[in-house]
């Protein structure tokens, strides 16, 4: 996994609430057996109309947000299906950070496992931020993971992240590395753990 330390980048607003992972990547695109290439179908049915043409009302298709690496989305982002393809699609498209006021559990874990940083902010901060980006599409946001801070030109907030997960992101480690280092404790556990495994 690529380490994540700091990021200074532009953002794209997606104020819709309860964006489920079926919208992020529809099921018909889950037939691949590698993690690559999902980006071209991210938000497929919102980015394209029924005839396959780009929908220019959708923020990701608007020139003013081109190159944005931060997605700012409405509350309860990533609910629904556990498909990690949603995180892969966002990463493959070029996103490094998602900001929302609330994330669904499984999506949040999947994002962290792919070096995509989910930042939870207050509902009022989010509202203000969405407005700011809509008014000034060129504005740059700064994320400092070490300090756990998010800066906009007018606001600053700190965000919470599990200390272990923070370390993983900063170093580019993943959970497999840690779990394999625990092999002995796991074997010892297995030796006394019988009844529920039968």
């Amino acid at each position: 996994m690529e380490p994540f330390v700091t990021l200074k980048a532009r953002a794209v607003p997606l104020a819709t609430e309860n964006i489920d992972t079926d919208q992020i990547i529809p099921a018909r695109f889950l037939k691949a057996t590698s993690k690559k290439g999902f980006g071209k179908n991210v938000f497929r049915d919102w980015r394209f109309d029924k005839t396959g043409h780009l929908n220019y009302e959708f923020p990701l298709n608007q020139k003013k947000y081109e190159g944005a690496q931060i997605l700012v989305a409405g509350t309860n982002f990533g609910c629904g299906s556990s498909r990690e393809h949603a995180a892969w699609a966002l990463v493959d498209y070029g996103f490094k950070v998602v900001i929302s006021s609330f994330f669904a559990d499984i999506f949040k874990g999947n994002a962290l496992n792919n070096g995509l940083l989910p930042i939870t902010v207050d509902a009022s901060f989010l509202k203000q931020l969405l407005l700011e980006i809509q008014t000034t599409p060129q504005l740059q946001l700064e994320v400092d993971l070490e300090k756990q801070e998010l800066h906009t030109p007018t606001q600053k907030t700190s965000f919470a992240i599990d200390a272990y997960k923070k370390m993983c992101l900063l170093q580019g480690y993943d959970d497999i590395d840690y779990l394999l280092s625990q092999k002995e404790s796991i074997s010892a556990f297995e030796a006394q753990h019988t009844l529920s495994t039968l």
Partner: peptide, 22 residues
């Protein structure tokens, strides 16, 4: 509970998962 594919790999590798207790 449902897990992502990275976690499927973790269980493959160790029969364990790293989790915050809900």
């Amino acid at each position: 509970f449902g897990i992502g594919t990275s976690q499927v790999a973790q269980v493959f590798a160790s029969q364990c998962l790293l989790l915050e207790k809900p």
